[in-house]
Amino acid sequence: KKYKVVEVKENKDGTVELVVENENGEKKKITLSKEELDKLKAGDTVELK
């Protein structure tokens, strides 16, 4: 499934919390490390299994 990044929030521990949404409007929260996030920004599309 493809999800669009709608919100990006940095946590104090250096991880980043993303809120992503698919075309049905379903939202998910995922947490990434700073390194994983470096290639993402709001409006990008991510694929989740």
Rank of each mutant, 00 (worst) to 15 (best):
T15P: 01
S33I: 09
E35N: 13
E17S: 08
E21F: 04
K49A: 15
V8Y: 04
E23W: 06
G25H: 05
K29F: 13
S33A: 13
A42F: 06
E10R: 03
G14Q: 02
E17G: 06
N22L: 06
L48I: 15
T45F: 14
V16I: 10
T15V: 03
E35V: 11
V16D: 00
V46G: 11
L48Y: 00
L18E: 00
E26L: 07
E17D: 11
E26W: 03
K28E: 11
V20Q: 00
K39D: 14
G43Q: 05
G43K: 02
L18K: 00
Y3R: 04
K1I: 13
K4F: 10
K39Q: 10
V46N: 05
D38I: 08
V6T: 05
D44P: 02
D13K: 01
T31R: 08
V20N: 00
G14K: 02
V16S: 05
E21G: 01
K34S: 14
L48H: 12
V6W: 02
L18N: 00
L40P: 15
K49Q: 15
D44V: 05
K9E: 03
E47K: 04
V16W: 14
K29R: 12
T45W: 14
L37G: 15
L40N: 04
K34T: 12
E47R: 06
T31C: 14
E10A: 10
N24D: 12
G14S: 02
N11F: 08
E17N: 07
L18F: 02
K28H: 15
E10T: 08
N11L: 10
G25Q: 03
L40D: 01
V16R: 07
V5G: 01
N22P: 01
E36H: 14
I30P: 00
E23H: 06
D13E: 03
G43P: 02
V5P: 02
K27G: 03
K29V: 13
L18V: 13
L37H: 13
V5I: 14
L48M: 07
K12E: 09
L18D: 00
K9T: 11
N11Q: 09
K34C: 09
V46Q: 03
V6P: 00
I30K: 01
L37I: 13
K4N: 06
K9D: 02
N24G: 07
